[in-house]
Amino acid sequence: MPVKTWDMGVRFTHWTVAGIVVWNLFGPTDQSHRVLGYIAAGLVACRIVWGFVGTPYARFSAWWPTPARLKDYARSLAAGKPLHHLSHNPLGGLMAIALWLLILALAASGWLMRSDAFWGEDWLDNLHTYLSIALQACMCVHILAAIIMSIWTRDNLIGSMLTGFKRDPDNR
C-alpha cells in the first residue's frame, strides 16, 4: 500500500535544484549561472529549514544518518537484505547532506569570486572548480545508487520523488 512520504515542497526543491545544477554544470557561466546558483542555495536553505519544521518524512529526525543508523544499514546491505525506510535510508541521507553542503559551498565561493576582496584570486576559482567536480561525482553516485536500490529493493525511489508516494512493505 503506498504511503505519502515526500511532500510537494521536498519534491519541488529536489527537482528544481537538480535542474539548476545540471544547467549550471553544462550551461554558460554568465549572469544566469550566478543567479541560478543563488536560487539553488536559497532552495537548499529552505529545505534545511523544512528539515526541522516540515512534514514527518521530510524532517531530519526521520532520516538523519547517525552512526548507529549507518551501521545497521551497512549490516543489512552486507547481508543482502537492505532495511526499508519510508524516508531516506541512512546512506541516502548522508548523500543529501553532502550534496547540500557542496551546493552551499559553490554558492559561497561563487559569491566570493565576485567580491572586491577576492576578485581574480586563482585559488578561489580553483576551489569553485573542485567543488563543481565533487558535486558532479556525488550526483553520479546519487543517481546510480537510486537506480540500483530501486531495482534491488523493488521500491521505485525515482518514481517516489516524482509522485510523493513510497511502498510500505509493512502495510500491503
Rank of each mutant, 00 (worst) to 15 (best):
F165P: 02
A41M: 07
I48F: 12
I151K: 14
V3G: 03
A41G: 09
A108H: 00
M1P: 09
K71H: 13
G110E: 03
V44C: 08
L99H: 04
M161T: 07
T163E: 10
G159V: 08
L157M: 14
K81V: 10
W111Y: 02
T163R: 08
Q31H: 13
A96D: 08
I48H: 03
C140W: 08
V10A: 13
S76K: 06
F26W: 14
T55V: 00
A68E: 15
G9V: 11
R172V: 09
L131F: 13
A41Y: 05
L77T: 03
A145C: 05
Y38H: 09
K81Q: 13
S61H: 04
F60N: 01
L157D: 03
D125N: 10
W119A: 03
A98S: 15
L36D: 04
A146G: 15
G164H: 04
G42F: 06
D170G: 09
K4W: 13
W100V: 10
T55D: 08
W152D: 05
G42K: 03
A107D: 00
A18G: 15
V141E: 01
R114L: 10
Y38P: 01
F60Q: 01
A78W: 08
I133H: 06
A40D: 06
I103S: 04
G120S: 07
L135P: 01
I20M: 08
T153F: 02
L101V: 14
W63E: 05
D125I: 00
W119Y: 10
T129W: 10
M8G: 07
M161V: 12
I103V: 15
A134D: 07
G120N: 10
L127H: 03
W6I: 07
V3K: 14
S32G: 05
M113V: 00
A18C: 11
D125Y: 02
R114E: 12
Y57Q: 04
A18D: 05
L104E: 08
W100Q: 13
L144E: 03
R59N: 04
V17E: 03
W63T: 03
A78G: 03
D155W: 05
D30C: 02
R47Y: 05
I151W: 13
L77R: 00
A105H: 00
C140V: 15
I158Q: 12
R167C: 01
I158C: 10
C138H: 09
R154K: 14
H84Y: 06
A62R: 02
R114Y: 04
S61Y: 00
A62Y: 04
V141N: 01
V10Y: 02
A41N: 01
H88M: 11
R11H: 01
V44D: 06
A137E: 01
R11T: 05
T5G: 09
I147E: 11
Y130E: 12
G159D: 09
I39W: 02
R167V: 10
D170A: 14
D116P: 09
P169E: 05
V49D: 07
L102K: 00
A79K: 12
F165C: 12
